[in-house]
Computed example of a mutant assay.
Amino acid sequence: MLYIVGLGPGSQQLMTQEAIETIKKVDTIVGYITYIHLVEDMIKGKDIVTTGMRGEIERSKKAIEIAETGKDVAIISSGDAGIYGMAGLVLEMAAKEDKHVDIKVIPGVTASIAAAAALGAPLMNDFCHISLSDLMTPWDVIKDRLDAAAKSDFVICLYNPRSKGRPNNLREALNIILKYKSEDTVVGIGKDVARKHEIDKITTIKDLDETEINMTTIVIVGNKNTYVADGRMITPRGYTL
């Protein structure tokens, strides 16, 4: 059996019980070295297969090969494996190569949900996820999605918002959003969510400091009704109070 496991955002306290039980029972763990470190105290004595950054295809192939031998193997992702994680790639590869292995996806807590809980309740009405990484998706497509989401006044969760190789994508994204939203729109920032040096901050589009944002940050841009009360970011669901 091949399990595709979402580890949650970083803390073992935010791992699902099913994810914990799956990691305990499998023979082999396959993962990016950073994710292996998140669960290293849980996987002693198991066979470990690791790769560096951008080794997703290699890891997927190896996990499928191990599962074909009859062993139980887990390939791990941070957050939820089905949200910018390994689930899609593994399933695509198994289908394309006609690999007849049993596969089960184990869900996890994605970064936007963990950040939202720390910030208050910003996702109480319709929201969407948009990754600002153009490694897999053309930047023009991302811009079109940003435009549509902002025009429709979604709460927008920005994944992979800024890196050394993409220092301007966040600013360009915010400029697109500002075509439809006020510069005073509330923005929540969750950095290293559920990890040792977590930072949670509420600001506005106007006052957002881009230098504080990196690839381990989730940026949540509110809708026109999102507000701050008692230090909490709140998007109303629409109840009459």
Rank of each mutant, 00 (worst) to 15 (best):
Q13V: 10
V187W: 00
R59A: 07
E212F: 08
V155A: 02
L132Y: 04
D230R: 14
G82H: 01
D80V: 06
K191T: 15
A95I: 05
S11I: 08
G55T: 09
K99Q: 06
T216S: 13
K164L: 09
T28D: 12
T204D: 00
G222V: 02
D144I: 09
L178H: 01
Q17R: 13
K44P: 05
K25Q: 14
I64H: 07
T203A: 12
E92T: 07
G120W: 05
T185M: 00
S77V: 01
G31F: 08
A74H: 00
N169A: 13
I4V: 15
T34V: 14
E183F: 11
A148L: 11
M42V: 10
R171G: 05
L178K: 14
K179F: 00
Y227Q: 06
D102N: 13
S77Y: 02
I20G: 01
N175T: 07
R162Y: 03
A148Y: 03
I202P: 09
E198R: 05
K206P: 06
D209E: 15
I189S: 04
R162V: 02
I205H: 04
L158K: 04
R195H: 07
E18W: 09
G82M: 00
L158R: 02
T211F: 10
I234C: 04
I130Y: 12
D144M: 13
L178A: 05
S163N: 02
Y227T: 13
E210Q: 10
N169K: 11
G45V: 06
V228E: 12
I106V: 15
E198Y: 10
P161I: 13
C128Q: 01
V228C: 09
G190Q: 08
T204L: 00
S152Y: 04
I106F: 02
K104A: 03
L132N: 03
A111D: 00
R145V: 08
I76H: 00
K62T: 15
I176T: 09
L132T: 05
R237D: 07
V141N: 06
E92N: 14
A116G: 11
A95Q: 14
V39A: 10
S133V: 08
K179R: 14
A81N: 03
P138R: 09
H37I: 03
S77D: 02
P138S: 08
D144W: 02
Y180C: 02
P167A: 04
K25M: 13
G31V: 06
E40R: 15
T50C: 10
G79F: 04
M215S: 06
T240W: 12
W139F: 12
G31E: 11
A117S: 15
D27E: 14
K44D: 12
I213M: 03
A115H: 04
D209H: 11
V101H: 04
I199T: 14
G10N: 10
L208W: 12
Q17C: 09
